[in-house]
């Protein structure tokens, strides 16, 4: 039983990472109905920025905040420069642009920082907190940081004028323009926000999975699975889905099969759930337009 709980709790840490990236995917999906396949690679690149800053002697938490700010700007610039010309392009064309971005970020990281695996420090102490024997301090720290980020995002969308305008722009761009909202900029800010959230996910994941340009492939997949499991039209469902996937992955890896093919097994389970419940566990069924 204790061993099982251990698996569940340490699954929560990776679950927090999936939840963050799932939220980043949903922020962009709700505004544009595109899944940004480059989100994981953008997060990976942000993590390298943090590594670089720390390597230059910047203290961890300053590097952490600086990385979030830089990532926000990168996200905004990408939307304005790369994505914006494709506003009216067919959906698959946009997917290909995302693939292009994915390849570019992966390649730039390999070029600047090499493909060798780096270790990434955790800001949390070595011994677990409060004698918690189920989670290491990095694992509990990851969950705490993620929950704090989620609370901030919630407050932003719920209580600020800009957050309200962003929700409005995603729901109904035409009406938003009619109340004076600059919808294009809302999209750019959404991209910035997603990139910033992804940066947090990357920095929290890196001490667990180590830092290398390909670290985010599997993480993106599980985040997308979490988002779809929870319902891609519902940010909080997506977050919950991310946590569920994290736990599921860990438990499946420990009890059902070895770590060798746990990816495949977890995926089969997720796809199975989606086949049974296509709109996700907490998603609204979107009525097909006739």
């Amino acid at each position: 039983m204790v061993a099982f709980l251990h698996q569940v709790f340490s699954g929560l840490a990776m679950g927090a990472v999936y939840a963050s990236l799932a939220l980043a995917l949903v922020v962009i999906y709700q505004a544009t109905h595109h899944v940004n396949f480059a989100q994981g690679e953008m997060a990976m690149f942000s993590t390298y920025i943090a590594w670089d800053l720390i390597d230059r002697g910047v203290p961890y938490w300053e590097a952490f905040l600086l990385t979030i700010a830089i990532s926000f700007l990168i996200g905004m610039v990408i939307e304005r420069v790369v994505i914006r010309p494709f506003e009216r392009a067919p959906a698959l064309t946009v997917v290909i642009v995302f693939i292009g971005l994915l390849v570019i970020f992966n390649s730039l990281a390999g070029w600047r920082y090499s493909y060798t695996i780096k270790s990434f420090e955790s800001p949390f102490p070595d011994e677990p907190w409060f004698g918690n024997s189920f989670m290491s301090s990095h694992e509990s720290g990851t969950v705490v940081v993620t929950l704090a980020m989620l609370a901030l995002v919630y407050i932003f969308f719920r209580f600020t004028k800009l957050g309200l305008a962003m929700r409005a722009a995603a729901l109904n761009p035409t009406s938003s323009r009619l109340v004076g909202i600059r919808v294009g900029w809302m999209l750019a800010i959404g991209w910035g926000l997603a990139a910033a959230i992804g940066a947090i996910a990357g920095m929290m994941a890196a001490p667990i999975v180590y830092l290398d340009p390909n670290m985010m492939g599997g993480i993106l997949l599980f985040s997308l699975a979490g988002a779809l499991l929870g319902g891609i039209d519902n940010p909080w469902g997506a977050v919950l889905g991310g946590f569920i996937v994290g736990v599921l992955e860990n438990v499946a890896g420990a009890y059902l099969v070895g770590t060798e093919i746990k990816l495949s097994v977890a995926l089969i389970i997720i796809v199975g759930v989606l086949v049974a419940k296509p709109s996700g566990l907490f998603g609204r069924r979107i009525a097909a337009r006739v």
Binding site: V82, P85, F86, A89, P90, T93, I96, V97, I99, G100, L101, L102, V103, I104, N106, S107, L108, G110, W111, S114
Partner: peptide, 23 residues
């Protein structure tokens, strides 16, 4: 210095091509 960059160039070409020929 650009030895590790071919895939970045590929990505840029890809996006540029999509821009010129979206279909």
């Amino acid at each position: 210095s650009a030895k590790a960059l071919p895939w970045a160039i590929y990505g840029v070409l890809l996006i540029g091509l999509m821009y010129m020929m979206p279909t």
